[in-house]
């Protein structure tokens, strides 16, 4: 065998090896048993991030000149369901946020009620799981203030946000969940203003969640109801959120 032949054979062997390896990775990705092994890294990420950062650590806040000219809207940009379009048509005058589940006093709040709650304004960076970032100024009711109003029961461990947007031909409702630590965090808001204007439909009107230490998909838009629960495995496919049900990490700190 000449050197040339040997080289050609080696190249063919490497190409074959590479193809086999990659199709093997594809097969593992679609198997039932392998992804749970990969996803064990989610728990490690979660544990390490919580171990290395204080519970109340604050996300950086930027100055007004850092605000991006147009805040990118991603995911759903208009739920377009009849019920939602009706809310839009009367400028959310008939909107009511239902807060219930494991609480002592469930409430139904109008947008005016929510605006009357203690608020916070913050200029923060929004990091999308896709990789981009945008800086915007958010004003909203502090979620901790709302929790003080409804008095969570000791068994409540998570807040589930039920949203107006529906996805795909199955019209799957969007939902998200966070734990009490994030819910009581100083920067966690039910935002109703973006860059000094009422929250646009594209960005989640009338209310969207801000959990500044996690990625964008956690920050549910078009919030219609908040349910306090002990566990969330009965909701959706049981992973705590629309994107979590599609393989994304529940704790989206990275």
């Amino acid at each position: 065998m000449s050197t040339h032949d040997r080289r050609t054979h080696l190249k063919a062997l490497l190409a074959l090896g590479g193809t086999l390896f990659l199709s093997g990775c594809d097969r593992l990705s679609r198997s039932n048993w392998f992804p749970p092994i990969l996803k064990s890294a989610d728990r490690l990420n979660d544990a390490v991030q919580h171990a290395l950062t204080p519970r109340k650590a604050m996300a950086r806040e930027y100055s007004p000149e850092d605000i991006a000219p147009g805040f990118r809207a991603n995911g759903s940009t208009n739920p377009k369901t009849p019920a939602y379009l009706e809310l839009v048509s009367d400028n959310f005058g008939s909107y009511r946020l239902q807060v219930g589940g494991l609480v002592q006093s469930p409430v139904n709040l109008s947008l005016a009620d929510i605006r009357a709650l203690p608020s916070r304004t913050q200029i923060t960076r929004h990091d999308c799981v896709e990789g981009w970032s945008a800086i915007g100024q958010w004003k909203g009711a502090r979620l901790s203030a709302l929790l003080e109003k409804v008095q969570p029961l000791p068994s409540a461990r998570f807040l589930v946000f039920h949203c107006a947007d529906r996805w795909g031909s199955a019209q799957t409702p969007y939902y998200e969940s966070i734990d009490m630590e994030d819910a009581y965090h100083e920067q966690t808001l039910l935002a109703y203003e973006l860059n000094n204007a009422p929250l646009p439909v594209a960005n989640g009107a009338p209310l969207r969640l801000r959990v500044e230490r996690q990625l964008g998909y956690k920050m549910a838009k078009y919030i219609m109801a908040i349910e306090l629960v002990e566990r969330f495995d009965h909701i959706g496919d049981g992973n705590g959120g629309f994107w979590e049900d599609r393989g994304y990490a529940w704790y989206a700190g990275i």
Binding site: C25, D26, L38, K39, A41, W243, G247, Y248
Partner: peptide, 23 residues
């Protein structure tokens, strides 16, 4: 597609591989 894991467009699964093997 022959340069990505997995080969199809699948961000969630790509992140799963990335973080696990990064650890």
């Amino acid at each position: 597609s022959w340069l990505t894991i997995p080969s199809s467009r699948w961000l969630a699964m790509g992140r799963n591989w990335h973080f696990f093997f990064a650890w």
